[in-house]
Write a protein that binds this DNA or RNA. Sequence first.
DNA 1: CGATGGATTGAATCTAATCAAGGCGTGTGG
DNA 2: CCACACGCCTTGATTAGATTCAATCCATCG
Lengths: 243, 243
Amino acid sequence: MPRPDENPLDRMVETLGERAPIPDKAITAILQVPYVAKQLYPGSLFVREGTRADKCGILTSGLVVCQKTNRDGDRQILLVKLPGDMLGLQSLYLDTPDHNIQALTESEIAIVPSDLLKAISDEFVVVRDAISRIMLTEASMLRELILNIGQRDARARLAHFLCEFAVRIGGTNKISNRSFELPLTQEQLGDALGLTAVHINRTLQLLTRDGLIARDAKSIRFVDWDRLQDIADFSTGYLHLQK
Amino acid sequence: MPRPDENPLDRMVETLGERAPIPDKAITAILQVPYVAKQLYPGSLFVREGTRADKCGILTSGLVVCQKTNRDGDRQILLVKLPGDMLGLQSLYLDTPDHNIQALTESEIAIVPSDLLKAISDEFVVVRDAISRIMLTEASMLRELILNIGQRDARARLAHFLCEFAVRIGGTNKISNRSFELPLTQEQLGDALGLTAVHINRTLQLLTRDGLIARDAKSIRFVDWDRLQDIADFSTGYLHLQK
DNA sequence: CGATGGATTGAATCTAATCAAGGCGTGTGG
DNA sequence: CCACACGCCTTGATTAGATTCAATCCATCG
């Protein structure tokens, strides 16, 4: 659901509102924050590790990731950001980013000065609560990723990623037999799961052969959602979804 | 440095004070919070995933970890908590813990009702800032761990863990040729790094043979701190240390 | 039409896991 | 005080899962 005509700050209010009931006064304040819409090209960085953190924002379209690289330049994707997700909230509290925020696909973001959002969150307790819950949910996803990479084999790892992605884009309803677009290359999937692209390829084939998923060009269909969740050891608790 | 005679809430004020200057009024408020001192035995849980989150605390002595397990019961250690570290801050904002908090060694903690600490943080912006910075620093450590497990081989992974542990307990000064106690079994190290105990054993031997560390019973000495940092690809940025 | 980026396949290699046994130190109970 | 048990560390042999390297295929795009 791209909503190109919408004011990105409305979208921000909506995202925050999913975590706490935002009062009208706070909504008014947020909507008055000046923002800059920016287009990001695949591979370009919005936030760079070690620079000065003074801006945050919201993703309005496309796909963006938090990532870090080691000395050899190997990239580890830490978190995939979907449209509607907040970007760079860290900057409200820490002045040096510890990771990069990078576009995977062509993306659009709205950028907001961190100090203005911080001021609003200082004024309205509920806004701060919403932001804290968002940050903590991100941390929870990082923890699950550590469990995923540290303890599960490639099959379960990839299955888990697919489950998480599907739930996050589509909600939890009737996923079985529904297909969705997975706009990640196998290289990028590998970077997200600590595996090589070649092994991602083989593992995708394995999941397909086992009748868990079906795929064509860029989309994936869940053939057996229940069994996929099962082998992925996936459950939604860690996403802290609101009912 | 165990400080058994100290009021744990003083310790909490100190910990928060490292992240933001806490005003006297806030200090007074914190020191008035009722707390329960509790002893934790190795393996016992302070917070359990999926239960109700209504308490947080501070570790006063011993070693405690955040961990999750998969369906097969394999444990992944996510974060090692050292004396002075806050525990379960999540509970101020989310009502279901997404991970366990478990004692590794015999430990002492002071437990505080989350809603009381939340009330104080709602009243004093600076307290909330301190708490947010602590939570974000934890998240940063999780990200580095993902990079560590996802992209580095056992040697670098273990070296990185040792570097982090040393810096966190001892500060960054003159680490070279200094020994410190590492009260983790090889099993526990494995759980922290996504490796088996057997492989930890072999990798420790490798680091020793390469003249990077020396070890006896329970302690480790850094023989070549610079080179260890180098092969670990370690730098302290992600710890967001205050000067 | 050639160029490019991604997907696929195969063969060889390597890292880490697994399985199994033995060693060492400490604490306990007869 | 010795014997034994227990937890942890160590070692060796084998296996398995994932990487590496290299080639080919395929679709898209200028």
